[in-house]
Computed example of a mutant assay.
Amino acid sequence: MTEYLIPTAASETEFVEKRSRFIGHVWPVESEEEARAHIEAMKKKYYDARHNCWCYRIKDGGVERYSDDGEPQGTAGQPMLNVFQREQVTNVCCVVTRYFGGILLGAGGLVRAYTQSAKDALDAAGISVVRRWVEVAVPCPYSFFERIKLEVEAKGGVLGEVEYAADVTVHALLPEEAVDGFSARLTELTAGALEPLLLGESFQAVPLG
């Protein structure tokens, strides 16, 4: 089963360390060309910055690239890339721009600053899981509403829209391998009174948490 993590959206974050400004950007990307287009755009936008360090990871071909852009070797691009490797996020491009504040940070300080900037930008972007999902609808009495929500979450599912009428209908996306267990759990909880309606499958990105 194919499953992988990507950034949910583009993001921009900023912090100051000893008068140096670090501006972090993250984007979801599908190709090296798309990643390089973002990198070039940032170099143009922040043309007066001392450094525009970058990295990207592309799932197809397992491509990983990074650049320290003039910072001491190993203090910027690689630590940034490590953030996405640790979080197992792919199809991602990150650029961290540094405006030098006149105070040297040292190698350790640079590693910490570029790591923090990449992590902050990823946190702001959010992470989505791309996988095959099964959409289900569960019509149920209002008294079961909260319980159904808990069961969806317990199976790694994601709640969707809720229809309110005489009964309530809960829509959700479930990992395909969790559907049978979810159905069995509903049967057990309601003595067979409730069962999910299967509405179809899709391969898509869904935000985590």
Score class of each variant (00 low, 15 high):
204 Q>V: 14
207 P>Y: 02
159 L>N: 01
190 T>D: 09
129 V>D: 00
175 P>C: 00
180 D>N: 13
55 C>G: 02
34 E>N: 02
201 E>Q: 13
143 S>A: 14
153 E>V: 13
17 E>R: 10
155 K>I: 05
129 V>Y: 00
79 P>R: 00
38 H>N: 06
116 Q>R: 15
48 D>P: 02
153 E>Y: 12
40 E>I: 06
169 T>M: 08
41 A>Y: 09
203 F>I: 08
51 H>Q: 00
28 P>A: 04
52 N>G: 04
47 Y>M: 09
78 Q>Y: 11
116 Q>I: 06
81 L>P: 03
182 F>T: 03
54 W>I: 01
169 T>C: 12
95 V>Q: 01
75 T>D: 06
113 A>N: 01
123 D>H: 13
7 P>M: 08
33 E>D: 15
126 G>F: 11
148 I>E: 03
139 P>W: 03
39 I>P: 11
160 G>Q: 01
119 K>R: 15
191 A>M: 10
191 A>Y: 11
135 E>K: 15
133 W>E: 05
16 V>R: 13
31 S>M: 02
192 G>N: 08
24 G>E: 05
89 V>F: 11
88 Q>A: 15
13 T>L: 10
118 A>E: 01
68 D>P: 05
131 R>E: 01
160 G>A: 01
72 P>W: 08
184 A>R: 15
44 K>F: 08
142 Y>W: 14
149 K>I: 03
163 E>A: 14
61 G>D: 07
75 T>N: 05
190 T>R: 04
205 A>E: 02
133 W>T: 08
23 I>C: 05
27 W>F: 15
128 S>D: 10
111 V>D: 01
89 V>I: 15
145 F>I: 07
88 Q>P: 09
88 Q>G: 10
157 G>L: 00
16 V>D: 12
68 D>R: 01
10 A>R: 14
103 I>D: 04
207 P>N: 02
134 V>Q: 13
133 W>G: 03
144 F>I: 07
95 V>T: 05
53 C>Y: 00
177 E>V: 11
109 G>P: 08
33 E>M: 10
147 R>N: 12
